[in-house]
Every structure is written in structure tokens, then in C-alpha cells.
Amino acid sequence: MSGIVSLTAALAVATLSASPIQDNGATGEWRMHVGSPDAQTTLDVEFDPADAGIAGVLPTTGWVSALGFEMRGRNSTLEYATSTAAGSMWCLAGSTENFADIRLHVPHNARISFFRMWGFDGSADHDLASFLFESCLPNLSAGAPVNTILAQLASSGSPGSFTEVVSLATPQPVTDTQDCTYWARVRFGTVGTTCPAGGNLILRKFRIQYTLVP
């Protein structure tokens, strides 16, 4: 049996698009997120290390990122191009494969709090969608992979260059690198179609923020 895709966590996550009021990079970024239907609305903080005074010295918070060009096609039929200047990847028009994956080397036993993507969407009728996956196998025995969507994001309309972020719903997932691996996936355009023309959907970067579990 091929892997099982569980949508349990994904369905508990919702994202609100960025707004100038919420997005204040100078003082830390606030995002409101809605957890499971029964959960209370919560607030979370995506840290800016500048807040800590010394860049990088935040004992409990860290980030893992991947640039667009680090991705590889979900299948070898992905036709793509990349940019050094923007660190990006886009799918070429007509490519029958429009998904690409990248492994995220998150630390063990860390709570994933945010999933963010940067990209470009200049297409009025296609969007850029991304997913954060956990793929697990039993520790010392055989089994089918269990793949869980931890978070998902999508562009909407044709905003041009954009960034979207989602705060993962409580309880935030805790990484287990002994049994699991973590992946970001992008979908260029609509499911079941070829990639749209014009290089109007571009993935520039993924990033997750995590906090260590005490």
C-alpha cells in the first residue's frame, strides 16, 4: 500500500493573509491563526532575531529554510528553471508534472510554530500552493510511510511578489527525526493541469520556525 496521507493536522490549520497592521517586521510579527473548529483563537509570534539584540542568539528558537532552486521534482518529468539572483524555481509551461519537493532538516524534538513561503504569483487564474509534510515510518520495523500535512499555504489572485505565513495550530507538532522526515512541497498551478505559461508562478523560499521542547 502506498503511503497514507493524513489531513488531520492540515484541516486544523487556517491562514490569514498578511496585512500591514499585523506584519511589523521591526518589532516581531504577529499572526492570528484559527485552530481546529473547536479551538480558541490564539496568538503566536514569529520572532525576528533583531529583537534579541544579538542576532542568532535565541536559545529556544530556530529556523530552517530552503530556497526554491533546492527543490527537485516529485517525478523526473518536472520541467523547470531557476534563478541565482532570486534563489527561485518555476515550472515551465506545459510541464506535465507541477509538484516539487525539498527536504527540511529540522532538529529533533522541536515544536514547529510557523511555515512561511515567499514567491511570485502573476497569474490571474493559477495559484502557488505549498505544503509542509511529515513522513514517518516505524522505528525498527516494516511499514507503509505515513505522510501528514502539517500546514499549507497558497497565494491568491495575482499579487506579484508575495509572502504568506501560517501559524501551526495548537498543539503544534513536535518533530521526531528518528522516525520521520520533513518536507516542503510546492504545486505550481492547478491540480491535474500542466504548468501555466509565462513563468508567472515562482517559488522563492520556504522557512519554518521552531521552538525547542523543554
Partner: peptide
């Protein structure tokens, strides 16, 4: 060796 940076308030990277 290249480095590209982009803050949450930026949407275009600096490489």
C-alpha cells in the same frame, strides 16, 4: 559562494 537574504517584510531577495 552566494548568500541570499529576505526578511518577512521583504518579498524580493537580495543576493
Amino acid at each position: 559562494v552566494q548568500r541570499t537574504c529576505m526578511s518577512p517584510t521583504q518579498v524580493n531577495p537580495t543576493t
